[in-house]
């Protein structure tokens, strides 16, 4: 018994077997190919689609301004507020102080309960609360005036119209989106902080670090590894939520500008296609950025470390022992 196809050699050698076939993959490929072809045909031949017009919309100064200021810059500013406030909320939530912890919980509860569109609308009308304008100074100074006869203790004041203009405009948008997102970031940051082993706090404390130093130098950098990936998702979600800004209203914004054009020209589909393409581009760029951030904060963990461990010869990581 010898030869190429023999199955029963005494000392089996190299395996020359028939691979498992996947006929359904070919069926799936065919179905998807047909669907893509139909869609492409529709997009190219339909008279409702006018790609030249789409390009023209994408090139409008107002649209590009909306993209840069209303979508991109707004996303950045809102997320900066969200991350800073969110991390502080998470630290408050995890603190031993029941008042701080409770306040952080209430904040999260409130902002997670209000739909963002409603919140933006609401922010635009909040000026009504400040009939006397808004001042920076000693709280309840008017009571002091009544009792002690002290003068007004205000260092900086603006009138109601200004408050309306601020809250009902770009600043209001940054504030509303940022504070609302902070509630979600707080939960993400909390999960990140909790993911850091108790032993890390203890080792840092045993070295004489203050609680602040423990948090800043040891716990937060490690928590970032867990915080960054979901935060990337939040940034991408925020890009899309800037399209709600017309509720305030903020008019320097991509989607709003595109709807203006579509309303004026009745070329709805090609105009919206311009917005869709910009959102796709923006999201793609952000995904690349997220990849690099994850690598930065993954230092000492996971695959990067593993690859170099192989060279070092031994592999015992913090994750390896329990």
């Amino acid at each position: 018994m010898s030869g190429h196809g023999s199955v029963e050699d005494a000392r089996p050698g190299r395996i020359d077997a028939v691979e498992v076939r996947h006929p359904w993959r070919w069926v799936a490929l065919a179905v998807i190919a047909v669907l893509v072809a139909m869609l492409a045909h529709l997009l190219v031949t339909s008279p409702a689609f006018d790609w030249a017009f789409t390009l023209e919309v994408m090139n409008q100064t107002a649209v590009i301004r909306g993209l840069l200021l209303g979508t991109l810059l707004m996303t950045v500013l809102a997320m900066v507020i969200a991350v800073v406030v969110g991390v502080l909320l998470a630290i408050a939530r995890l603190s031993d102080n029941p008042l701080l912890s409770g306040a952080a919980w209430v904040y999260t509860w409130f902002f997670r309960s209000i739909p963002r569109y409603v919140l933006l609308f609401l922010t635009g009308t909040l000026g009504a609360l400040f009939a006397d304008g808004l001042s920076l100074g000693v709280p309840f100074d008017f009571l002091l005036t009544d009792v002690l006869g002290t003068p007004e203790l205000r260092f900086f004041s603006v009138d109601q119209a200004t408050v309306y203009a601020w809250l009902g405009g770009y600043a209001g948008g940054v504030l509303a989106l940022g504070l609302s997102e902070a509630a979600y970031m707080a939960e993400i940051a909390r999960a990140g902080l909790l993911s850091v082993d108790r032993g890390q706090h203890e080792a840092a404390a045993a070295l004489g670090m203050t609680q602040r130093q423990v948090m800043r130098r040891v716990v937060l950098p490690q928590a970032m590894r867990v915080i960054v990936p979901p935060t990337g998702n939040e940034v991408i979600a925020m890009v899309k939520d800037t399209s709600l800004l017309s509720a305030l209203p903020v008019t320097v914004e991509l989607f709003y500008q595109v709807t203006l054009i579509s309303g004026r020209t009745y070329q709805v589909l090609p105009a919206l296609a311009a917005a869709v393409i910009y959102y796709l581009v923006l999201t793609s760029v952000l995904m690349v950025g997220q990849h690099f951030l994850e690598r930065r904060f993954g230092r000492g963990f996971g695959q990067g470390a593993g690859a170099r461990t192989a060279a070092a010869g031994v592999a015992v990581g913090p994750g390896a022992q329990k």
């Binding site: 080792a203 000492g300 913090p318």
Partner: peptide, 26 residues
């Protein structure tokens, strides 16, 4: 308070069962 306890710990070294090195630092 915490800050004073931290100051006392500066003069006392501790080595843990599970090492507790900071994994994000060399």
């Amino acid at each position: 308070p915490d800050a004073r306890i931290a100051a006392q710990r500066r003069d006392i070294g501790m080595v843990f069962q599970r090492f507790n090195l900071f994994p994000h630092m060399t």
